[in-house]
Amino acid sequence: MKPRKVSAAAAAALTLALAATACGSDGGGSDDGKKITVGIKFDQPGVGLKTPDGGYQGFDVDVARYVARELGYAPSDVVFKEAKSADRETLLQRGDVDFIAASYSINDERRKKVDFAGPYFLAHQDVLVRAGDDSIKTPADLNDKKLCSVTGSTSAQNVKTKLAPRAQLQEYGGYSECLTGLENGTIDAVTTDDAILAGYAAQDQFKGKFRLGGFKLSDELYGIGVKKGDTELRNRIDAALRKMVQDSEWKKAVEANFGPAGYRSEPPPGLSTPAG
């Protein structure tokens, strides 16, 4: 968090104080009205992606920007920080980010550590396989196959414990690594939410190479994560999400980010907490 500008006379007096507090900054911005730090994915096309020119795009990015605007922040005051699946709870607990919009599925285990606004999106767990691979037609066909997901994600564990116990689970740091393995044949299937998989499959370098299984293995309700106990911020974000749906910006964001892949989203899910 950058300190506000001060006069030359005050600057000298505040030098030691600023130096002492700089290292202890919580990384947020919602309290001082200057900057707000938002955790997103950097490697999920269609959902959250950092582009080669340093920009950011994707459905979650659009949602985060809309919410930040409703919280009173200009676009230039939004700072994006990478939120890998395994790091999301830690980022919130340490105060490194103000909120996280990063394909963050709400579940009971995560609710013990963080609070959620939303849900704002309903996805379904699915698998991505090579277009010419006809050996995986049902979830049971994943038995004895090399199944990839990212560290900290529940998707692969869901398959292994409930549907294909003999699946050979491979966990990588990011989905892009899973896609590379799928393309070169060292991985047989990648599993995560269908929206994420559709975003990857729609990339120019992957067009025609992969296909979705269409299994709908689970319902994944995406929420915006906030620090545990921050009820005020959670409710303000809920209010922003409600407005985004009501004024059709939610629908526009879905169509802009997932439409090119032919993906059809579910209607927006109801928000679970009161606004205000």
Score class of each variant (00 low, 15 high):
Lys146His: 10
Phe80Ile: 06
Gln246Val: 09
Ala102Ser: 13
Gly29Lys: 03
Asp134Ile: 00
Ile136Cys: 02
Asp141Gly: 06
Thr180Trp: 02
Pro45Trp: 04
Tyr120Ile: 06
Thr15Cys: 01
Ile224Ala: 00
Ala22Asn: 05
Thr21Arg: 13
Val47Pro: 00
Tyr73Arg: 05
Lys112Met: 13
Lys207Phe: 08
Ser76Ile: 00
Ile224Thr: 03
Ala86Ser: 14
Leu92Glu: 08
Lys112Thr: 09
Arg236Asp: 06
Ala117Glu: 02
Ala261Gln: 07
Val6Asp: 05
Ser30Leu: 14
Ala131Cys: 01
Tyr200Asp: 04
Tyr104Arg: 08
Gly39Ser: 05
Ala11Ser: 12
Asn158Lys: 09
Val47Met: 03
Met244Asn: 09
Leu163Thr: 14
Ala198Gln: 11
Gly259His: 10
Ala68Val: 08
Ala198Tyr: 11
Lys160Thr: 14
Ser135Gly: 09
Asp188Phe: 08
Gly95Asn: 05
Lys50Val: 11
Glu82Leu: 02
Ser272Asp: 15
Leu18Phe: 07
Lys228Gly: 09
Asn235Arg: 14
Glu70Cys: 06
Asp193Asn: 11
Gln170Gly: 03
Ser176Ala: 15
Ile196Lys: 00
Pro268Lys: 04
Leu212Ala: 10
Glu177Leu: 14
Thr138His: 09
Glu183Leu: 14
Ser149Gln: 07
Val78Ile: 15
Asp133Thr: 05
Lys162Trp: 09
Cys178Leu: 07
Gln203Glu: 13
Ala12Leu: 15
Lys146Gln: 07
Thr37Phe: 10
Glu183Lys: 15
Val6Glu: 07
Gly152His: 02
Gly185Pro: 05
Leu221Phe: 14
Leu241Trp: 06
Ser248Asp: 15
Lys112Val: 08
Gly24Trp: 10
Arg65Gly: 11
Pro268Ala: 14
Leu92Tyr: 05
Asp204Ile: 11
Ile136Trp: 04
Lys228His: 12
Gln170Val: 15
Ala253Trp: 10
Gly132Trp: 05
Ser248Glu: 14
Asp219Trp: 09
Val245Ile: 15
Val114Pro: 12
Gly214Lys: 07
Leu49Tyr: 08
Arg4Met: 06
Gly208Val: 12
Gly213Met: 04
Leu163Asn: 07
Lys2Ile: 15
Arg111Val: 06
Tyr73Lys: 11
Gly208Met: 05
Pro75Glu: 02
Leu217Glu: 04
Thr138Leu: 01
Val245Asn: 01
Arg166Ile: 03
Thr192Gly: 01
Leu233Ala: 08
